[in-house]
């Protein structure tokens, strides 16, 4: 049996149709004019122990609502969630014992307390025995050098340090499932890398199931074997990451600022690229804004470095940027049938 079982899950919110202006606000007080918003509109999936699943989608797709239902905060409007055979909403305290949750930049440690004391209180709350506690603390120390932070008050930590503490703290009681909501948001690249190593390592050594929601496709690429893409409350894709990799792993967009840009530049660019890489070059060119040109390259067909080289030698390029593909683009591509 799977660890997490979700079947036809849905959640509606009733929202008042608000009117404009002060007069409208007064009329709203007595209004029965509600509309129903379907935040989650019938989703089903099963997750097994030890999986790292990326749960992704654009803003307002229904990610948070799903996570809130899985963690027992929200009661579903319809359908079923079972974690270890129990319904989260009805068994909040028991479920909390087997879960760890990290919600973005909101720390769950005690703001005024030194880091080590937060961990000691968590030990007490989750009834972690001394031996396990010591083992875990040694391991966390190895992974992130936690010892140096022990005596610091949580409020004095940098965002990166605090997030590292929060992540490791969520694993202290050896939970079966850890929910990570935007764990790398706002972090610089080195901390991000560290964070990813820890998550991977903890998953590997204890077979902890990890549900990761993120906007950072780099996180997904680095960590997940399986992804679920959700948009407008429905699942667009659920499966192996390799297929999706082609969507955001292989595509990179070059933004170029070309000197003396005019109406014919796009055509000339295309001609030059076809000349070099043939008609099947997998490159799309479009004008962006104010003389910036987007060149989107499918790296599976044409290496980015060669395209860049070729363009640099044939045009006077004043400025270049390389853009990672965005979540919105991935979702758009899925809609366009890229995965079917």
């Amino acid at each position: 049996m799977s660890l997490i079982h979700v079947k036809d899950l849905s959640k509606h919110f009733k929202i008042l149709n608000r009117r404009e202006g002060l007069g409208g606000a007064f009329r709203d007080l007595f209004s029965g004019d509600f509309r129903t918003v379907e935040a989650v509109a019938g989703i089903s999936f099963d997750i097994d122990a030890g999986e790292i699943v990326g749960y992704i989608g654009p803003n307002g797709a229904g990610k948070s609502t799903t996570i809130k239902m899985m963690t027992g905060i929200l009661k579903p409007s319809g359908g079923l969630i079972e974690i270890n055979g129990l319904v989260p909403y009805e068994n909040r305290i028991r479920q909390a014992q087997i879960m760890g949750v990290v919600f973005g930049q909101r720390t769950q440690l005690w703001w005024d307390l030194p880091v080590i004391e937060s961990f000691k209180i968590l030990k007490e709350i989750y009834k972690v025995d001394q031996k396990t506690f010591d083992e875990h603390m040694d391991m966390f120390n190895e992974l992130v050098g936690l010892k140096e932070l022990y005596s610091q008050q949580v409020r004095t930590l940098s965002l990166g340090q605090r997030m590292l503490c929060d992540i490791t703290a969520s694993f202290l009681h050896n939970p079966q499932i850890v929910f990570l909501d935007e764990p790398t948001i706002g972090l610089d690249i080195s901390v991000k890398a560290k964070m990813r190593t820890i998550i991977k390592e903890l998953n590997r050594t204890r077979n902890t199931t990890i549900i990761l929601t993120t906007h950072d496709l780099g996180d997904v690429e680095a960590l997940c074997n399986r992804i679920i893409i959700i948009d407008k409350g429905k699942i667009l894709y659920d499966g192996d990451i390799k297929k999706v990799n082609a969507l955001f792993g292989a595509y990179r967009t070059l933004k170029l600022q070309i000197d003396q840009f005019n109406e014919t530049t796009l055509q000339t660019l295309n001609d030059k690229l076809t000349e070099k890489f043939g008609t099947d070059h997998g490159i799309t060119i479009s004008e962006n804004e104010e003389s910036w040109t987007d060149v989107t390259i499918d790296q599976a067909r044409t290496p980015l470095s060669e395209v860049l080289n070729h363009l640099m030698t044939n045009f006077t390029v004043m400025d270049v940027r390389i853009v990672e593909i965005s979540m919105e683009n991935v979702v758009r591509k899925v809609y366009d049938g890229a995965l079917t």
């Binding site: 963690t71 909390a96 909101r106 709350i125």
Partner: peptide, 21 residues
């Protein structure tokens, strides 16, 4: 501000956990 969410995540009585802070 949404920071109330964290009080749901511990295996504790929520009023106890909230007020103990």
């Amino acid at each position: 501000q949404g920071t109330f969410l964290k009080y749901y995540f511990r295996p504790l009585n929520m009023m106890f956990y909230y007020m103990s802070e």
